[in-house]
Amino acid sequence: MNSYQGQAISWKLSDGVVELELHRQPCNEIGSLTLHELEQFAGVLPALEYEAHALIIHSSVKAGFCAGADLRELYQRSQALDKKEAAKAMRDFVERIHRVMNRLDESPLTTIAAVHGVCFGGGLELALTCDMIIADRMARFCFPELRLGLIPGFGGIPRLKRDLGNAVVRDLLLTGRSFNATKGQQIGLASQLAGEGEVLNAARATAAQMGKFDRATAIAAKRFIKPVPYEELRQEIEIFCELFSQPVVEAALKKFVESEDAQPYLP
């Protein structure tokens, strides 16, 4: 199978490059549908890895790459269940998303996140699984989870710590502030910037360059350069699930979901 068209994601294999496209409106929020389709993608990755050398993850949604977890679905699910069941459902969801994220992180393909617009929370965590982030000049990044009484729960902290200085990590996490692509490049998050609307072309050119090298060497280099921080990822799940059961989270989710404020994405 060289292509797949889902409701939230699609992918195609062409010239040794897999392009995974996110296309769920309004901004690729990651809920059960997206997770299910990402799991399906992870399931076919072994076959794709046999034929391809690179993977590009990008979005065709105008608003951006991904605004993070689907907070409305998260809140509605927590309301439909009692507290114990809601906590279990959340843990199941987080365990599943970690398996997908780890699988992407571990892939022997050279992986590129081509990011434009909003890249927040779970969207940034998805981008951080990739070997490199190429950012549109107008992209904006953020880990807003502390505003909800949570920490990032899709593997964000260990992967951010892997790539950035700890002082910057603390600033970004503890303020929950968003920052632009230029800042993202300055701190080492994005390795390349592209002109507005050109990020996918830049990612394709980069993937083509990567295809010139011996695959076994590229795989060995990736394994050496980019270890997966499994122990910290496991710790993150435990901390996230513990925090999720706190009343402050339910109150914050309710406030977000029911907000008529024009600025739900601002702190």
């Binding site: 901004c27 608003a63 951006g64 605004a67 617009g117 909003v118 107008m138 904006r140 968003s178 632009n180 692509a181 404020d261 024009a262 600025q263 739900p264 994405y265 601002l266």
Partner: peptide, 11 residues
């Protein structure tokens, strides 16, 4: 909306 406000902030 708020996302467009962030776009304005970036610009």
């Amino acid at each position: 909306d708020s996302l467009q406000a962030l776009d304005l902030l970036t610009r």
